[in-house]
Amino acid sequence: MQTQQAGMSLRWLLTASFINNVAYGFIWPLTSIYLHDQLYQTLVVIGWVMMANAIGQAVGSLVSGRLFDRFEPRKLMQFGTLMMIVINLLFIFFHGWPSYAVILTLAGFFGGWNTATINSYGTYVRSHDGRFVFNMLYFISNFGMVFATAAVGPIYNFGITWLFWLALVMYLVLMAIVQFTFKIKVERTQQTEQKQTLRLPKWNVRLIYTGVIGLGVLWISYSQWQGNLSIYMSSILKLPVWQYSMLWTINGILIAIIQLGMNALNLSANRKSMFIQIYAGLIMFGLAFMILPFAKTFTGFAIAMVVTTIGEATAFPMIPALVNELSPIELKGRYQGMTAAAPSVGRAVGPLIGGAVIEQSGYGTMFYGGAGVVFIAFIGVAIMIMTGYRHATQYE
């Protein structure tokens, strides 16, 4: 069992999350374009590479989440950061084919490791409500990722090696922050029997897995933006790469406005608002995919991105917050690891499924199919929450 004597500083946790996501954002956003245009790989091969990266993230998240409940959290974060430093050094010298794909898989594993550890630290912030903490974690992590994604377009023109150098510098900064600020005091007592017999109420388990599966489905659709859509815009519609990068700038600005607005209105303290955000997020993701078949210019993609971002900013942070409320302190690392793994699973199968559908039936089929899958997920999630939440045990 873990009992915390001093809570984690939200300020330093958010700083670490921002730097971690900026660093990782220099590595993967242009993976599809780099593999397609520079290493001359097909969409199916690109899908397999991104799947390997995402599976690495999922496994890393699950392993880190399990270890968080058993070992000193700071050492886990230090180890993950050190490995990302080593990985970026490898990227600098070995970024041809197939070494790039192999190293990218390792980067996925330790990227997932760090993300799950940071999310698990979020359960130990005592100065704010859990929903506020995960709102802010999601906002700051996405702000860091979007900041990096908006920058990689111009930097990429000078060579991909510069992106790896920048990521290396950011991970060195992250290591220093972890060393000096991630010093929460945790006591552990060996209660093996209690660990083995600890079971969640059945509705807690059902709702947690519903949230995790719903998050994975959302990321299957979202991964199309990060993979196949970049190729669609640059290679099929012949739109410049900077326009694709600009979409993520819009994404980041809109996330900031929505998240800061929700925090200013204190919506995170309202449990009913949490459910509304989850439902609305699923619906908006589906609507965005209904817009994409008609998008042929930057304006059309920008409108679809705005709709997607509204769904993202409302639903994504609330699912880990829901899982946090439904899990006891002894198991928070395990279940936050699952919520961190769900996006990786979505990223794993999303590009592969999307690439296969596109090559067989075209982009239009992929867009409409994505909308259908999201709407089915919305129905399932809504039924489970409305049926089971009142029967579940809340731990926060």
Rank of each mutant, 00 (worst) to 15 (best):
L260S: 08
L260W: 02
G261C: 06
M262L: 08
M262N: 04
N263M: 09
A264P: 02
A264K: 13
L265T: 05
L265G: 05
N266G: 09
L267W: 08
A269S: 11
A269G: 10
N270H: 10
N270L: 06
R271S: 11
M274E: 11
M274W: 05
F275H: 14
F275R: 13
F275M: 13
F275N: 13
Q277T: 02
Q277W: 04
I278S: 07
I278C: 08
I278T: 06
Y279W: 14
A280R: 03
L282Y: 07
M284Q: 06
M284S: 14
F285P: 08
L287C: 14
A288S: 15
M290I: 12
L292I: 13
L292T: 11
P293W: 03
F294V: 02
T297W: 00
T297K: 01
F298K: 00
F298M: 04
T299N: 05
G300Q: 02
F301Y: 07
F301R: 00
F301W: 04
A302K: 01
A302L: 03
I303N: 02
A304P: 05
A304E: 06
M305L: 13
M305A: 12
V306S: 12
V306F: 15
V307G: 14
V307D: 15
T308W: 10
T309L: 04
A313C: 07
A313F: 02
T314R: 00
A315I: 00
A315V: 04
M318Q: 14
M318W: 03
I319T: 14
I319Y: 11
P320F: 03
P320R: 06
P320G: 09
